[in-house]
Nucleic acid binder design. Structure first.
Lengths: 261, 261
DNA sequence: CAGTGGTCTAGACCACATC
DNA sequence: ATGTGGTCTAGACCACTGT
């Protein structure tokens, strides 16, 4: 070859030779998953730098004592995460640059916590109410049927960030006010055995009403971000509908998107 | 517990028996992909209704004359799209309800067009300029290096909806103003052989300045949605940075999210 | 041309859910 | 006990990329 391919710089040969993998066949953790996690760690720690080739799958499978499909499954999972790129006839290489974490169903509490903002929550209402038409439609229940209404104010550094209004099918979950003030709703649902599967979100903006302004410590007419979300479990049944308002001066949505070919 | 299984209603037996699949082994289209598309069509057309079981993979593979891994690959791709759910010991069933289309890298032009809004575009600027610090950082080039600046106004029904400001590495693409007025930027990039791979987006809100208000036919101080996006190709190199402003009264972002287990 | 990933096969055994 | 999906194997041939 020439000096550098110049195209996307396949850079060095397999930088993977120096890595030892530790696969435990007696573990209940699938082999492809063990391998994927160790490859991911190697990428995170810079052992595999962006642009590095991974080395071909056949050699890798021989070296690891795995079949090629198993190795492929591990690699594919990282391709799906956007960490690797495969090119036929070329090889598999670590993606250049900033693909850090893919998109997730954003939990405000987790977002703030991972940003080191030390979120706190004040529960304003936690009660059972009859469903209005829009809530009933979103949750797929009869209008007037009982739902749990949850209204919360979320703070960081003592400043209000968001007003959160959520509706859940009653009897889906016991909502303890004290726990709600120390953790997020999604975390509570998760630990109650509810596995979220998908969600539909709408993000918009509008000006603050006088009431909202007082509540969020903004001026009347200030720009607010709005979000409506309906979340579904694995069977596709709605488990939550939320209508949230964020202070645009203190919060924005941050996404990482992947394009599926 | 009660009369039916009540859990998630596995409903009928395999409703798939009546479907004939048409697999063409001489086609260059992979078999698993042919099968996936035909399964998806069956779901879209209601032949496979929500909750229907798909029938076990082994029988299906025998019936189709395919190996089980190939059938699995087809099914898995639909699971990844959120259309099917697999449960060990139970079976594969069509997800209940509204999972229509998963999240995609949203192109405003396509969004408006698919909503039947007949978008039009007015190109305000299309020229080469030196990169400012923030643009240079986003595109990973030197400050002051030449980039292509694109400023557009997007309309639906003769009303302005958004002001779009984009920066691209020069020489990546020839931006013909006439074509830009009749299609979207992403579509032009795609037909120029640029395959988008991932993007980082920030969505926020703020009040309109006097200038923006005039441009978008809003009042000064009206709430606007803002979006900044950097898009990357499959090697991870930035190919576009955009800073967009939307009239909140006429546009909102609509997402469908999937949770990866 | 040689080397890569992409697809496909025909089995096997295991873990889990349901009856 | 039965049936399901989950994992894994050891090969095979093809399509594409680069030289």
């Amino acid at each position: 070859m020439t000096r550098t391919g110049d195209h996307s710089r396949p850079v060095t040969g397999p930088a993977l030779d120096s890595v030892d993998f530790d696969l435990d066949r007696s573990s209940p953790v699938p082999l492809y998953y063990q391998l994927a996690r160790q490859l991911e760690a190697a990428i995170d720690h810079g052992v595999l730098a962006p642009g590095n080739l991974l080395g071909n799958e056949v050699d890798l499978s021989v070296r690891l004592g795995l079949s090629r499909p198993t190795v492929r499954q591990a690699i594919q999972s990282l391709v799906d995460k956007g960490l690797l790129v495969r090119r036929r006839g070329v090889g598999t290489q670590v993606v250049h640059s900033q693909v850090k974490r893919p998109l997730e169903l954003s939990s405000l509490y987790d977002d703030l916590e991972s940003a080191g903002q030390g979120p706190t929550t004040q529960v304003l209402r936690n009660e059972r109410v009859p469903a209005t038409a829009d809530v009933a439609a979103a949750l797929g229940i009869a209008e007037g049927g009982e739902v749990t209404l949850l209204e919360r104010l979320r703070f960081t550094h003592g400043q209000p960030v968001a007003f959160l209004c959520n509706y859940l099918p009653t009897a889906l979950l016991e909502l303890d006010t004290a726990r709600l003030e120390s953790t997020g709703l999604y975390r509570m649902m998760r630990s109650a055995g509810i596995t979220l599967h998908s969600a539909r979100q709408t993000i918009g903006a509008r000006s603050a009403t006088a009431e909202e302004a007082v509540c969020l410590d903004e001026k009347e007419g200030a720009a607010l971000l709005t979000m409506q979300r309906t979340a579904y479990d694995d069977t596709g049944r709605p488990v939550e509908y939320g209508s949230h308002i964020y202070r645009a001066s203190r919060y924005a949505f941050d996404f990482q998107l992947l394009v599926r070919p």
